[in-house]
């Protein structure tokens, strides 16, 4: 009977802890999004890699080296 009541206590404590931790993860995530968004807008929109000639040159050079001249770039897309 003692073990059963401990198991019931663990059900309560366990589920509450999991919810609280994930609640904090969600709240922290939202806070971080807000902070990062504010900082990002302060810095202005970074140039898209797709259109930046410097970035294109760097990617082309990297592909050239890694594939030893055999590779070809058909599309450049941001990962996210």
């Amino acid at each position: 009977m003692d073990q059963l009541s401990t198991a019931l206590t663990l059900l309560g404590i366990g589920m509450i802890t999991v919810f609280v931790v994930l609640l904090l993860v969600v709240l922290t995530g939202n806070l971080l999004i807000r902070i990062v968004n504010n900082l990002s807008s302060d810095e202005g929109t970074p140039p898209s890699g797709k259109d930046d000639p410097g970035v294109i040159a760097a990617i082309t050079a990297a592909v050239e080296i890694v594939t030893q001249g055999q590779g070809r770039i058909t599309k450049i897309e941001p990962k996210n």
């Binding site: 059900l11 969600v26 995530g29 999004i33």
Partner: peptide, 30 residues
């Protein structure tokens, strides 16, 4: 973690799905 960050509120369902752990704990004691 990209999908989770884009849909943070869905993270709560990851908590609810842990109920099986604790209910089976009780049954196993029984």
């Amino acid at each position: 973690f990209g999908p989770m960050l884009r849909n943070l509120r869905l993270a709560f369902f990851g908590a609810a799905a842990q109920i099986g752990i604790f209910t089976v704990l009780i049954s196993a004691v029984a």
